[in-house]
């Protein structure tokens, strides 16, 4: 897998308390779902499934259950003892790129930069729903609409820099321009 965070970052993340991170994650995911209600509709029978989103370079796992317009988010140190329907594993920067459409999920799977286990159909439903939702950093952070464009462009630059610094797979999303690199 490519795009792994440096060990020092992982170490620091390991001593941070889970509860504030869980609150922040819940707020971000809740904002995104409120801005894109079509995502839960598109999940159809998989709204209500629990997804273990596992950033392999971080000492925690997100357990996310999307329902209605909100989401239940729990963070655990290890997914092995947790109950979930499907688990998606990849470095944090790669998972972020899956959410905002930077990466194609199948291409990440072919190159082994991402792996899945559990209910494959639920994973596919989530992937397709995320693809259609076009979630961007501004919607997750509830940035006012008039600032959303510049904010998203700045975030893209920052993520592009991080991908490059971490040797993550090159971007090929709709905003990648004429080349595959951000």
């Amino acid at each position: 897998m490519r795009g792994i965070l440096p060990a020092i970052v992982t170490k620091i993340a390991g001593i941070l308390p889970l509860m504030p991170m869980e609150l922040a994650a819940k707020t971000l995911i809740g904002n995104a779902l409120a801005a894109r209600p079509g995502l839960v509709r598109r999940l159809a029978e998989y709204a209500g499934a629990t997804f273990a989103i596992d950033p392999v370079d971080c000492p925690f796992v997100f357990l996310v259950k999307a329902e209605g317009e909100g989401a239940e988010v729990k963070m655990v140190r290890d997914a092995d003892g947790a109950a979930y329907d499907a688990r998606i594993k990849a470095p944090l920067i790669v998972l972020a790129g899956m959410i905002d459409g930077t990466y194609d999920g199948d291409a990440l799977f072919f190159s082994r930069d991402l792996s899945i286990e559990g209910d494959t159909e639920a994973v596919l439903a989530l992937r397709n729903a995320l693809e259609d939702a076009e979630i961007d950093p501004a919607s997750a952070l509830r940035v006012p609409e008039r600032f959303a464009g510049p904010f998203n462009r700045s975030a893209e630059l920052a993520f592009g820099f991080l991908r490059s610094a971490l040797h993550a797979p090159a971007a090929s999303g709709p905003k990648a321009g004429g080349t595959f690199d951000a």
Partner: peptide, 17 residues
């Protein structure tokens, strides 16, 4: 059709070019 926007954007642009 089962692929993501990243694939669509990259492949369509490449073939159109």
């Amino acid at each position: 059709r089962q692929r993501g926007r990243a694939y669509i954007a990259a492949v369509v642009k490449a073939f159109r070019r």
